[in-house]
Design a protein around this nucleic acid. Structure first.
Lengths: 339, 339
DNA sequence: TTCAGGACTCAAAGCGCTTCGGATAGAAGG
DNA sequence: CCTTCTATCCGAAGCGCTTTGAGTCCTGAA
């Protein structure tokens, strides 16, 4: 069933039917009802390809997911996507996701734009000096970055959490509890967020005249095994840490496993603070959560990011402001004074 | 830059340029080279909307992700998607994902089809008697289900693992080790895979004249907390289990946490077997993995599912067969004889 | 009665691509 | 030298929609 058929069925022109369905005012209320009813009855919906061609708008937003050699897909990504997807559905946008080898990433962005597949692009997990900013700035298509670059002079729109402050506060908390040797299980440090977290961690230490110890700082993909191995190895050091700071709750669970296995009691012998993205299958909720954590919902970030990007698309004039969210610091059962 | 501009730039007709770019034989090799070079130089790529309209093919595959009230997004989903996405990219398909409230699920499928957004649909996590099979069978669009329905008489294409067999073998293993009280932390039992797993678990028990004990069987969303709570509560029973069977490695990690917290030793005092989807951030790899597990890569399933669906789309005649994969049973450090 | 103006409706022109059905020119065959 | 291929290329139609610019038919004021 297409527009023409529907129109002739109703003895109306395609113009009127199109207008009736798209809510234009110059069509009789009664006519509109007839049209809408008939469309529903016959399961008519406008062909998206034709609509795209006629309007020049794709009503879709692109996500490029680079797959590195190690083939990891961050569970955080799923959660963010699900938040963004909620907003897209409500606003009538499709999400198109392109999973490509890391090396083809730039081409994937270029193709999306050249083929006019999307009206905007959402960019994930920026690197330190992320080439995608300059790449995408070269086109006139709106894009929004989840996270930031390190160069404030670049002009683009982003949403991020205050990673530095969060990890500074987390480290401060542990220092206040008397901990002096704090193991840091960071994310991969070529990523911007990890660099900022490290900066917060180091700043808190140096503010108390503690030199950051390279032996206590690690960075890697934030897996469970990484948390386990990291803690296990650091606990084997001559002067082992009494507390750990984890960059992801998944890593924190791994850390906890190593702590338990070593026969140490969480919150008594060893303290752990983690960042908590509120992943739905790794909940750290409850009145007194398991982990003391800096917390910020990644799903909420996804929702908001999508809203901001859609605003960028639909009101090109209006200056959409970037947003910096503060993470909550919630005290759980995983921290206590140094013994 | 569009076709017409590119064509006049080259002093060729749009016909020839289009054919050159699409690899039709009736164009001079030299001409083709000129065209391809010019297209690259000017960053030309055909407008996808126009192409869709002209060819009637969307070159896209749809995924509908229903968001239940509890708003959970399964990490397994991300992993599957990433596998499927790899295949899509190689084959030149887009993945379009629609995140909708559970109640709007059927409409989301209908809209995708009516608007001709996709050439095929990949359906996730079937329920017991999944209405989507009849819904989608009513259209002429190919679809593929990751998982199966319980009604063998329905004719559709699927890929699945042998959940029943996997859990039967896992249970058998524990029984062989002398365990008689085996706690079962299943996924939500309105889902098909969970029902099959339960059937395998029960079959193994009854084969040894052990009546399945409802107190030892739970089903819920497969979170870490569920594993923890489940084990904790079952360990508090008058006649507690000596082994546990978990439906997801996330749950298994939660189970392990409860075991450790109770001061029990994994593989000695308590055994755990889990299903392992090979999630990239929750690895259970290594020569002797942490968990004894029934293992099947969900990412590989995603890749294969995408291949099958694309075959369904591109060779409508050819009978594409459904596939049932067997899971590996790998022995780790989490199982041992009953004490 | 006339006519301006509002309320509806319509025909037709694209949007950018693919593809059908020729055209043209040189090569091959008679 | 004329016809028939073959290798290339082109014009134009059409995919299904939106939207511009024009009506047409009322209503109510003059």
């Amino acid at each position: 069933m297409n527009l023409k058929e529907l129109a002739s069925l109703l003895n109306l022109s395609t113009t009127t039917v199109s207008r009736a369905l798209n809510g234009y005012p110059e069509v009789n209320a009664e006519t509109r009802e007839r049209v809408v009813a008939a469309a529903r009855r016959h399961g008519y919906a406008p062909n998206q390809g034709a609509r795209r061609l006629a309007t020049g708008r794709a009503h879709a937003i692109g996500h490029v997911i680079p797959l590195a050699r190690h083939q990891m897909i961050n569970p955080i990504f799923a959660e963010f996507i699900s938040g963004a997807g909620e907003t897209y559905s409500i606003a009538g946008y499709d999400m198109i996701a392109s999973v490509v080898p890391e090396a083809d990433e730039a081409d994937a962005y270029r193709a999306m734009i050249a083929q006019r597949k999307v009206d905007g692009i959402l960019v994930h997990t920026p690197r330190l000096l992320d080439p995608r900013i300059d790449l995408l700035s070269g086109f006139s298509l709106p894009f929004l970055m989840h996270g930031r670059d390190s160069r404030p002079e670049r002009d683009y729109c982003w949403i991020d959490i205050n990673n530095r402050r969060a990890f500074l506060r987390a480290t401060d908390l542990l220092l206040d509890l008397g901990h002096r040797r704090i193991g840091f299980l960071n994310g991969m440090e070529h990523l911007n967020f990890a660099q900022r977290r490290r900066s917060g961690y180091c700043a808190a230490l140096t503010a108390r005249d503690i030199a950051p110890d390279p032996d206590l700082m690690r960075h890697a993909e934030m897996t469970e095994a990484y948390g386990y191995d990291g803690v296990r190895e650091m606990l084997g050091l001559p002067d082992p840490p009494t507390a750990f700071l984890a960059s992801s709750i998944i890593t924190a669970f791994g850390a906890l496993r190593a702590v338990s296995e070593a026969g140490l009691r969480l919150g008594a012998d060893i303290s752990i603070v983690t960042h908590d993205d509120e992943l739905s299958h790794m909940s750290n909720a409850g009145p007194v959560p398991l982990f003391t954590a800096t917390r910020s919902s990644i799903r909420a970030a996804g929702r908001r990011a999508a809203e901001m990007l859609i605003a960028l698309i639909e009101q090109p004039g209006a200056a959409t402001r970037s947003e910096l969210w503060e993470a909550d610091l919630t005290i759980g059962r995983s921290t206590g004074p140094r013994v």
